[in-house]
């Protein structure tokens, strides 16, 4: 039995040593590897605070075993943009007033990135649906919905000339 396993996180390899195999991806990210941007608020898949991308699919890290992510790519909130230079979605959250305590924010940012990659033209009700797995206790969602809609509009406006490229990564 190997003494460690490897996870690909935000583009680099991380070894997890001497870990108990029952640990969730959330626990390993936060406690063993120091990716504390991913939050824990319910540990049963209800709040979305722990949202990460595993092979570009939105996943609750509290529900996934860390071992199940080996051989896949994991993207956390820290991997979406370089520190100090927020992504368009991140900046939209700041500007629109979508952040209060900020505890729900990393999960929502990851979920919003996933949404806008999959459905760049998402508006209104579609955005509400897509983010309904992410609980925010502070904002009442108004500014969050506004932020995501604004980011979507800005992307569409910027990408209007090269619409055929959309979807290529």
């Amino acid at each position: 039995m190997p003494e460690f396993y490897e996870l690909q996180i935000n583009g680099s390899a991380h070894d997890v040593h001497d870990a108990w195999l029952g640990e969730s991806l959330l626990y390993v990210l936060r406690e063993r590897l120091g990716f504390t941007g991913t939050k824990s608020a319910c540990e049963e898949g209800e709040c979305g605070s722990c949202s990460v991308l595993v092979d570009d699919v939105l996943v609750c890290a509290c529900l996934a075993l860390a071992g199940s992510a080996t051989g896949k790519t994991v993207t956390t909130v820290e991997g979406l943009a370089a520190t100090g230079t927020p992504s368009d979605v991140q900046q939209a959250f700041v500007t629109a007033g979508a952040v209060q305590c900020g505890f729900c924010t990393p999960g929502l940012i990851v979920a919003a990135h996933a949404l806008l990659t999959e459905s760049p033209e998402a508006t209104g009700q579609e955005i509400r649906e897509a983010l309904s797995g992410n609980v925010c206790r502070c904002t009442g969602y108004g500014r969050i919905l506004e932020a995501v809609a604004a980011a979507a509009r800005a992307r569409l406006a910027a990408g209007a000339g090269s619409i055929d490229d959309r979807g290529e990564t």
């Binding site: 990716f35 504390t36 941007g37 991913t38 939050k39 956390t76 909130v77 820290e78 979406l80 943009a81 520190t83 100090g84 927020p86 991140q90 900046q91 959250f93 700041v94 500007t95 007033g97 952040v99 900020g102 505890f103 924010t105 990393p106 940012i109």
Partner: peptide
């Protein structure tokens, strides 16, 4: 806008 906003959206704000 909040001075802690960027750290909070980037996951670097320490709770």
């Amino acid at each position: 806008v909040r001075p802690d906003g960027v750290a909070k959206v980037q996951g670097t704000f320490s709770f």
